[in-house]
Design a protein around this nucleic acid. Structure first.
Lengths: 255, 255
DNA sequence: CTCCACTGGGTACGTTGTACGCGGTCATGG
DNA sequence: CCATGACCGCGTACAACGTACCCAGTGGAG
């Protein structure tokens, strides 16, 4: 079969040479899958369910997509496309990277279930490539490609782990099928037990602190992000200072 | 049923009050699962397969573990236990965090398949708690718990994303069932196509650069890690300088 | 007009996690 | 010392999954 020739989804043309006109499209299928995942989690977006969503038979999807894994590839690339990269690189790398980081976070918060799909390798999707070009383009003039790669890893590493933690909690609650206070009530005994044992002072500190309100999520994220950007700035040569006169440095730590 | 009372694995006692002596144990089951996953990937570690590995019937496992998800919880905590944290915190936070980062990386490389399990929430496993106590303990004297949390997110974010990339490639190849050169050959057309289009200069740069040997994996990781540690150092008050006279700062960038 | 690569989709298979119930075992209360 | 019942290992069974295979219909190319 000719299908096995393609390893990569993006090499397989959506439209074949000729034949009857297809009733659906990859975009339509991908959108339906995202809609379901947003509402009920990624595990609810089964092939049958997606097919039903667009009014197709279960097996019809395989005319458009070789496998569910490939569909998920399509989905993640589509989500990357939601990140606004208009006008990047702008010349102000710090502004660009901030906008990118905020965009990624916003997208993840809109679709928390992507946290469960492990991005293994770059799959060469068009939107992913666009991200590479635009975002790595921000530092391209200042550092070697290897260095750029390392700095990007630092940035995306921070963003992903920060957002993953932000998400993880809510997702766990949802997956368990319990309501939020119910979940809290269930794990309370364990927390209590751990605190009472006296063997976990740091853990106890975290729990106690977490009970009183501190920074908002947004502030927390921004605070950490500024730190990462400072770190990147330190790795750049002097000439890389952004042109804007009002550039933000790390604010005085009087919090 | 009393089972549903527990949300958390760690609250469920392994040994019941009385009855016939069990033939197996959680540790044995967990070890078997890890052994299979190491050899054939996590998806090969099905309940039946694990049971067969220890010579038990398929359903016997459920006498020890409420569900597969909980078993995976057990597994990840056990893997955390592989990280050597002896003598931490030692007073030299930079040495401690370096040792921790190296330990995490080594563990992930030993068990690449954990990259596919999304750690959502802290599940209060004993080894995970130990990591929190020891590693966050390294900075506890110097910064607030909130700040500490942020810095840890930075560190683990870097480590995870760096190692994830190191792993991802090999895992992808394994999962696809193709040999390495075969996989390369299959994706070559797409890469070629992208490069020839001329629309992806940064991507092209990466590919071209990647073909010539640069730093070793170890060096790359260490290089990035030093950067992250410098970043952490910058966020610490002056008093947090480690006692050792031979401390490493970022080396001159003459590479 | 004829051909055949394509279409949507029904049926069916293998594999998964796991609910349920069986007959046997053994610490405990009388 | 014996009866009780909570535990044991485990065989059977089921629902849900991804998807291989097959079918009758369709419409552009020769």
């Amino acid at each position: 079969m000719t299908d096995a020739e393609y390893v990569n989804i993006w090499m397989r043309p959506e439209r074949p040479a000729y034949g009857p006109k297809p009733a659906y499209s990859r975009a339509q299928i991908t959108d339906a899958a995202i809609r379901i995942a947003d509402a009920e989690g990624l595990e609810a977006a089964t092939m049958r369910r997606i097919a039903a969503e667009i009014g197709a038979g279960a097996m019809s999807l395989y005319r458009y997509v070789p496998s569910r894994d490939d569909l998920i590839e399509l989905i993640t690339d589509r989500l990357q496309g939601e990140i606004d990269l208009e006008g990047m690189p702008s010349g102000d790398w710090r502004a660009d990277l901030t906008r990118y980081a905020d965009g990624v976070r916003a997208m993840w918060l809109r679709h928390p279930w992507i946290a469960t799909v492990h991005r293994a390798l770059p799959s060469y999707g068009p939107n992913q490539l666009l991200v590479i070009e635009r975002v790595m383009g921000a530092l391209d003039a200042h550092v070697s490609i290897d260095e750029n790669f390392g700095l990007m890893a630092l940035l995306t590493g921070y963003v992903e782990s920060a957002v993953r933690e932000e998400i993880g909690w809510a997702e766990e609650v949802r997956r368990s099928g319990l309501s939020e206070p119910e979940w809290m009530a269930r794990s309370a005994p364990r927390v209590e037990q751990l605190m009472k044992s006296g063997e976990y002072p740091i853990f106890t500190k975290i729990v106690v602190q977490a009970r009183r309100p501190h920074q908002s999520r947004d502030e927390q994220f921004r605070h950490g992000l500024e730190r990462v950007l400072d770190c990147i700035a330190a790795a750049l040569p002097q000439a890389a200072e952004p042109p804007a006169p009002h550039r933000k440095r790390r604010k005085d730590r009087d919090d």
